[in-house]
Write a protein that binds this DNA or RNA. Structure first.
Length: 473
RNA sequence: GGCGGCGUAGCCAAGUGGCCAAGGCAGAGGUCUGCAAAACCUUUAUUCAGCGGUUCGAAUCCGCUCGCCGCCUCCA
């Protein structure tokens, strides 16, 4: 299996440090606002990575952090969480809690598996301080006025992930350099907090809070060991965040921190990166009012995780239609589910192999997805038209494994669309329409169909039964 | 200014040296149907931003030009 490693800038054969175990750490969200489509792309991408590694038989431990401590926003030392707390008139902890809940709510809707360990930065201050002490002890850090900085001159490899030279960093720098740093590129491990700062902790260097790269190093190493297999995150975190993680971790342990660095690309909107700070974002919650979460997942899967992805309503609608077709196909295939598949001599083994080959080539979900659509045509020929039950059963099992287990597409009806009062009424209206049709009272039958269409419900007449469904978007 | 990347049909998007350039959506024609919808079948880029070069052979490698983006500040 080939994985693109940002460290080497090429695809490498994937060999875990301690097979069959795989430790993967993915940078989690800062919980101060609702997650947007960009978060969706990132976490769906890594969800598929985890799902596929498990399908390949690896024992995966998936760790993801929750950043609830907040990072520096400006020179005043106010961080995003605190700023939001002031705006919403809540405690910082309430803000973090609130948006953590909403983050998982949206990830659940996208059918992302929960991480095996979801760890909050605020619960790991001890570990972070220990890391700072270790770096001080080893001479990789220095203390000035209650601030502790990492001394970049002690780590010659600094820049190896993002291909940057320390000398070049200074020139393009857009922020003012803190005066007490020895070198402008030195970064904070611990920051002193004044009285106004609400989120602060006592430490050997006085009251303060951790630097923004520290939590990932501490928690990744705590739960996955000093060297981990995969570290993932957004490409926009490559520098400085991941670069600093490497410097801290490797200086403290003397061991390689990460074997494979994986970075997902951005969602693009109006020709610009979708992000909070630019203001051109659409939250998942907003999106889900218009599109089914699975449509969003399907949309994400249609692109490659390392490519930028263009967001537009047209693209989302197209994704919805494509997913619809897959869902109908799956429903038809489901009638073969329990047939005897043991005797199957089927062409679908080949589809499975093609799918795996695509996924083994750096998780090419777009190519993998296309195999599913090829399957539609071939199942039509080898199962539906010949009513071949054993081939159908095999195809059904293959489809469930590929589409549902690995790609994480869920075709179960969303709650509220089944068994509630509205559904019962709709069922009755469709039944009524059927009676009109049997008596060839087309006008009355059409009237029902037209009226339902107006409230976004489509009626479809099949060979034997009529069905209704909610129209997407 | 430094580093990195992108430009493939109306839209989204795979493909990075060699069968006719995946797949989805939209479009066109057909089958089915009371009419629709859905489904199914067929079809849709002599061409991969442009110009040169390397090669028996390039969308894929190299050079230049044009356009665009990301990172260098928190960001998935």
């Amino acid at each position: 299996m080939q994985v693109f490693n940002t460290l080497s800038k090429r695809k490498e054969e994937f060999v875990p440090l301690h097979p069959p175990f795989v430790g993967i750490y993915v940078c989690g969200p800062t919980v101060y606002d609702d997650p947007h489509l960009g978060h969706g792309k990132s976490y769906v991408s890594f969800d598929v990575v985890v799902r596929f590694l498990r399908a390949k038989g690896y024992k995966v431990r998936y760790v993801q952090n929750i950043t609830d401590v907040g990072h520096l926003l400006d020179e005043d030392g106010e961080d995003r969480v605190i700023k939001k707390a002031r705006l919403e008139k809540l405690e910082p902890v309430e803000i973090a809690q609130k948006y953590e809940v909403r983050f998982f709510r949206d990830m659940d809707r996208l059918n992302c598996l929960r991480p095996d360990i979801s760890c909050r930065a605020s619960g790991h201050l001890i570990e972070m301080m220990e890391l700072v002490s270790e770096l001080l002890k080893r001479g990789h850090a220095y203390e000035v006025n209650g601030n502790v900085y990492f001394d970049i001159s002690t780590f010659p490899d600094y820049g190896k992930l993002s291909r940057r030279k320390v000398e070049e960093l200074r020139k393009g720098s857009r922020v003012e350099v803190a005066e007490d740093k020895r070198h402008p590129a030195d970064f904070a491990l611990w920051k002193r907090a004044d009285e106004r700062h609400i989120m602060k902790w006592p430490s050997p260097w006085g009251a303060g809070f951790p630097g923004w790269h520290l939590e990932c190093s501490s928690m990744a190493m705590k739960y996955l060991g000093e060297s981990i297999d995969i570290h993932g995150g957004g490409i926009d975190n490559q520098f400085p965040h991941h670069e600093c993680e490497i410097a801290q971790s490797e200086s403290a342990t003397g061991k390689p921190f990460v074997k494979y660095w994986m970075h997902n690309n951005m969602v693009v909107m109006d020709e610009k990166k979708m992000s909070k700070s630019l203001g051109n974002f659409v939250t998942l919650d907003q999106l889900f009012r218009q599109y089914d979460p699975m449509t969003v997942r399907f949309f994400i899967l249609q692109g490659h995780y390392r490519s930028p992805q263009e967001f537009s309503d047209e693209a989302l609608q197209a994704a919805g239609r494509g997913l619809d077709r897959l869902a109908r196909f799956r429903e038809e295939l489901l009638s073969f589910r329990n047939a005897d598949e043991a005797v199957a001599r089927s062409p679908f083994k080949e589809h499975k192999e093609r799918f795996y080959r695509a996924m083994e080539d750096d998780f090419n979900t777009a190519a993998a997805l296309s195999v599913l659509f090829d399957m539609i045509r071939d199942v039509q020929e080898h199962v539906f038209s010949s009513n071949n039950a054993s081939a159908g059963a095999f195809a059904c099992a293959v489809f469930e494994e590929l589409a549902e287990s690995i790609l994480g597409l869920s075709f179960e009806k969303t709650a509220g669309s089944q068994g509630d009062d509205v559904s019962c009424l709709l069922d009755y209206l469709v039944e009524m329409r059927r009676m009109f049709r049997e008596r060839k009272q087309w006008e009355l039958a059409d009237q029902i169909r037209n009226r339902l269409e107006k409230i976004g419900v489509v009626v479809e007449d099949g060979q034997t039964v009529s069905r209704w469904r909610k129209k997407q978007s």
